[in-house]
Write a protein that binds this DNA or RNA. Structure first.
Lengths: 229, 229
DNA sequence: TAAGTTAGTGACTAAACACTAACTTGGCGC
DNA sequence: GCGCCAAGTTAGTGTTTAGTCACTAACTTA
């Protein structure tokens, strides 16, 4: 018994270690023993803080959910144009995933869904929330004349989400050989290009250079080295 | 020991059972014992046909790959317009996934990738092949004036793939509460709408009614039933 | 400083796992 | 109808897993 810490601190240490290891060995392959040794405890100590392993996953998922929602609110609060807000939202999402790659690993892991219905529903609601926000941004951009008004914003929102998810899967399968945020903003530009009348892109044209330096997305983190023009 | 079958037949029986069960319990949670009892053998018998479990997964993955490529070639061979070919391709992909839901489960499962690099590379190449085909269809449609020529076909292809993958994830997380092909063709229509100049959609307009009745896509049978001319 | 609480340990369990080896038998060619 | 061999069985192996339990050291407070 080396150090002794308050339960709350240990809890978050365990959650953090779980997130880190889930990426390395896979969520379902991850054993309590591996988590314990990463934190610097015995395996039994894990069960003092989480009665079962499922409870640990639940806590991990809730933390992910909170982090996501925080980001989304930040994107919503920026006083930018709706189209820029959308760029900010997508870039933020990709940044978060790039800095915590266990998120797609857990999200994609069918193991967790099979044995933990609560977890599946939690992720399902998260996706729905995200869809609602994207839809609202697109609808606002349409009303503001920034995007073609003849397309259903809810369907277009699914396209944006699919862009993110497809990109993350490709990034994940391909050994993470490219910068997620960079490629994502490029692809979003391609989609926004399609959602704009040809030869008439007032917002996307003059903001293309600044689109990567999204407010609230840089912030000194390991990713997003400020490259604004 | 009831019946005794030739090895090749047993092999495919085991592969089929593995695919079926991988969906139900999750690819990594799936044990050789469960596979054996599903086929009607003892657990040890599995290892007569596959030296290790990884070899079994390899065989499963190769079968999936072959089925996919067969479908893609079928879409390529239809004498339709490029835009219709694209619809056919996406619908076929979604049909295959709907009839074999273990495919995304295996594809998404990070477990398998972590311990089996060959498998990851195989899926990676499959995705690249798919991307190439979609790109070629889009480029051809642009040349034929069916789609806006001012968008990069490779990026647009990634959007199409993202559409499929995002949709499948949503379908998977949401307990498969909707028809994958139906929702997919609807969403593809939304994307094609964006890829077309507003008020000028010659191909998508007159083919919208027939777009769900894609050749080789409907059919009563589970897979590619007879597709007339 | 004594009493109570809490974080952590070490040694354990029962089940599940992939995989092996020696043995047995069904079905084929002849 | 007989011999042979591949398909299949029985009975294991060693390892890994989540979870338990009795115990103890450290912190808190009256």
């Amino acid at each position: 018994m080396r150090t002794r810490k308050p339960a709350e601190q240990r809890r978050s240490e365990i959650i953090e270690a779980t997130l880190r290891l889930a990426d390395q060995v896979g969520p379902d392959r991850l054993s309590t023993a591996a988590i314990a040794s990463a934190v610097g405890l015995t395996q039994a100590a894990i069960f003092r803080h989480f009665p079962t392993k499922q409870d640990l996953w639940q806590a991990v998922a809730e933390q992910i959910g909170q982090t996501f929602q925080q980001r989304w609110l930040a994107a919503e609060r920026t006083g930018e144009s709706s189209q820029r807000k959308l760029r900010c939202l997508v870039a933020g999402q990709l940044e978060l995933i790039q800095s915590t790659p266990a998120i797609p690993a857990i999200l994609f892991s069918r193991e967790l869904h099979v044995e933990n219905d609560r977890l599946r529903l939690l992720f399902c609601r998260m996706m729905e929330s995200f869809h609602e926000i994207v839809t609202s941004f697109i609808a606002a951009a349409q009303r503001a004349g920034e995007l073609r008004p003849d397309l259903d914003p809810r369907d277009q929102a699914y396209l944006v989400i699919g862009l993110v998810q497809g990109l993350v899967l490709r990034w994940s399968l391909g050994g993470r050989g490219f910068d997620l945020v960079e490629e994502g903003t490029r692809l979003l530009e391609a989609l926004l290009g399609a959602m704009t009348v040809p030869g008439d892109r007032p917002v996307s044209a003059d903001s293309r250079g600044a689109s990567t330096a999204v407010p609230g997305a840089s912030g000194g983190g390991p990713t997003a080295a400020g490259r604004r023009g």
